[in-house]
Every structure is written in structure tokens, then in C-alpha cells.
Design a protein around this nucleic acid. Structure first.
Lengths: 216, 216
DNA sequence: AGTGTAATTCAACGCGCGTTGAATACGCAA
DNA sequence: TTGCGTATTCAACGCGCGTTGAATTACACT
């Protein structure tokens, strides 16, 4: 006997759509590809979700709340733990990088696919403007506020540019393009979120301090 | 009388394809959209370039050599100018960020589109692996070597991860998604490559130093 | 003016796309 | 067993896609 699938066809559609959209983008995937990969008739995805675009939205939304509220919980837990004194810059960055930990620890390949999809959305002008405000923008503002508190005197312009670089570094990491594997001849691996996390915290923290403590 | 276009239909196809591919990706653009935007019959793109994929490749290659050799020239000019002493970390990063300057100074909107296309390619697992090694990988290795020289004792693992964050920050900048505009309520603008360049150099340099001077 | 070549358009092909309405299988309560 | 609502498949539609070969135009050169 093999491992029971026990997962509904509906969920299988979401899973394979997640993986396919992450790799090939919205327009690079057809309903028939999704159906074939899920071993399901092509009409079933429409039955459950509606239009192709609705499948994409369903995939996007499925894990958005989990990721968001987990990030928020960690941010505020750190804030509370710090008490009267300021939360450290490193702690804020750690909370922001939490998706890396999340995907690593669950071991669920679905999370890796979802994060790659997020990277696809983040890097695209069209999708970024369309999807991110729905869910993720509010939390970003809370992160910015935390950064403002821990970097007193820093201008908003400096903080937002630094946040932008953080966001870019994270995005390329989530995309798992395999490029660093090839360039480094295997010394670093795109899928090694632990290493990405560990190196990223001191890198980004130092960048913030260098830019945000400048006087001019 | 208006400004003479003087630009061939062939070049107009490349220009609009550049803009469309950068915004919507390879699969998000049809030959007919390209033809319409270029005010040209749909068969003309095939006549000049062949398949749709060949149009994409032609767009990619058109500016690749210019960008690459300019970057290389600046890198080695700095190296020569430094003479016996090491080139500074900041100088190496400046050379790497040169596309930002290039696009800013020419004022040619084509360059901005090309860089956005590069961002699209960089962030996609499929396209990144397929296109980047053709042209850009060799120069990256030269940059890594320069970084090795200026960061003696740093492990390759640390250097490649730092390069990866640099690459990510640059990629998201080139993508010009407009997201930072909205988040910062207009205090920062995606299209302001000058500001992106100025903030990025100290940010990335500090990150490199923090990670690559660690002992462990 | 005439000719040859390159550039461009015209017309059409076959295919795969997203979507839909009707038909069928399934699970379960009565 | 029957009935019923949900899940799933079947069959098909019209459309837009990439591509192509033939027809037409533009143009350089004699």
C-alpha cells in the first residue's frame, strides 16, 4: 500500500497551480497544463474557482494570511519582549525574513513554491501593483514604523530606500533561480534558506546603519 | 513639421517589443500586440527575426554587449587608476551599478525598458538560467575576483551571498515596479535611478564589510 | 524608364486556448 | 433502494494565437 493521498482534487489543483505559476508566471501556464499536472479534467478548475485569473488569486490568497499574521506576531512579540527599550534592528529584520524560516522548517514544498510565486509578483510591475496592496502593504507600514523607532533621526527617504534593498534581496532569494548555485560552483545553494537567512541579517542591518545614520 | 522618426520599422519592432516584454513577460505579449504597437503588419516581425522567441533574443542581445563592455571598462579603468593599491569596495560596486547611471544619463527610455526586461529575466528561474549565462556570467566572475582582492580573507560563501543580495537589490531597482513610490507616499520614486544609485553604494558596501570581515 | 532586390502587407492555415452547459459518478441521509 | 446535492467528466464553442507563402510595394541602381 502506498501513502494515502487524502488530499482533495481541489487542493491538488491549487498545489500544482502554485508550482506552475511560480515557475512560468500567469501567462506561461494554461488551464490544461494545470489540469494535466493535477490529473483532473480541464473543466474542474473552472468549476471550483471560476476563471483562470480566479485560480491565480486563490493560490495567492491561500497562504497570504498565514504568512502575514505570523510575521506580525513575531514583530510584536519582539516588541513586547524588549519592553521599554527599543527592539534591535536585527530583530526587526529577522521578523521580516520570517518566510524563509517558515518554508525551511515546515519542509512543505508548497511553501517554497508559494514564496517563489511571491517573488514573481514582487518583481513584476503589473502584478506587484495589483496584488501586493491587497494583503501585504499594511504590514510593511508597520515594519517601517518599527524601523523608524529603532533608527531615530533617519529620514523617511533613507529608510524607504533601505527597505527597498532589503525587499530586493529577499525577493531574489525567494525566487530560487539557481543562479547563485551556478556562479558559486555549488558553494551556495538557492534553496538553502538557512544560509540565506543567516547571511542576510548582518548584511542588511549594516546597510541600514550605514545609510540611516548619515547626516546631511 | 514634426520631428522626423527616421527610425526603421525593424527598429520600431525591437523598441516596442522591449517595452512590452519588460512589462508583461514573454508569454504575456503576442506578436499582434507588438505589430500593433509598432504600427506594422503582424508578419513583419517574423520576416525580420523569425519566431517570437527570436524577437525576444534579438531584444535581449541588442544592448547586452554595450552594457557588458561598459561595465568591464569601468571596472578595469578603476583598477588601473588605483595602481599598486587595492581598488576600493565602493568603486567595484559603482562599476556594477553602472547600468543605473547609463540609463539615467542617456535619457533614452529604451534603456529603462531594457533594464526592466533584465530584471524580469533575473527574477525568473526559467529565463535567468537560460539567458544570463549567454552574456553576463563571465563578467560576474570578474567582479567576484575584484571583490576577492579587496576583501582579503573572506570566504567564497560569504562573498557569493553578499553578491546575491547586491544582485537582488539591483534587480528590484531595475524592475521599476512603482511599489516604493506608493509605500513611501511619493518620497521615493522607482524611476529615480540617481537616488537609487547614491543610496545603494554605502548600503551594499557596509553589508559586504559586515559579512565578509567576520571570523568564524 | 526599367529591373532586381529588399521590405512590407495580405490572406489564410491549423492549433490550442479559456470557458461553458449538459451528462455522469459519487457519497450519504432517509 | 431511492433521492439529492456535490463533484467530476465529456464534448464542444468561438476566438486569438504563431506562423507561412504569395502578392504587393518601395527603393536603389543603371
Amino acid at each position: 500500500m502506498s501513502t494515502t493521498p487524502s488530499i482533495s482534487k481541489r487542493d491538488r489543483i491549487l498545489d500544482v497551480a502554485e508550482a506552475l505559476f511560480a515557475t512560468h508566471g500567469f501567462d506561461g501556464v494554461t488551464m490544461r497544463q494545470i489540469a494535466n499536472a493535477a490529473e483532473v479534467d480541464v473543466a474542474l478548475a473552472s468549476y471550483h474557482f471560476g476563471k483562470k485569473r480566479d485560480v491565480f488569486d486563490a493560490v495567492f490568497m491561500r497562504r497570504a494570511d498565514i504568512l502575514n499574521s505570523t510575521r506580525r506576531d513575531v514583530l510584536y512579540a519582539n516588541q513586547k519582549a524588549a519592553g521599554k527599550q527599543q527592539q534591535s534592528l536585527e530583530q526587526i529584520i529577522e521578523a521580516f525574513l520570517l518566510p524563509l524560516k517558515l518554508a525551511q522548517e515546515t519542509g512543505d514544498p508548497g511553501w517554497r513554491n508559494y514564496l517563489a510565486l511571491l517573488a514573481y509578483i514582487m518583481a513584476s510591475p503589473v502584478w506587484s501593483q495589483e496584488m501586493m496592496p491587497k494583503i501585504y502593504d499594511k504590514l510593511v507600514e508597520e515594519f517601517i514604523n518599527a524601523l523608524r523607532s529603532t533608527l531615530p533621526g533617519a529620514s523617511d527617504e533613507n529608510i524607504y530606500w533601505c527597505y527597498h534593498y532589503l525587499s530586493g534581496a529577499l525577493t531574489l532569494t525567494l525566487a530560487q533561480t539557481g543562479r547563485i548555485d551556478k556562479l558559486s560552483k555549488g558553494k551556495c545553494r538557492s534553496t538553502d534558506f538557512d544560509a540565506a537567512y543567516e547571511h542576510m541579517i548582518p548584511f542588511i542591518a549594516a546597510g541600514f546603519r550605514a545609510v540611516c545614520s548619515k547626516q546631511d
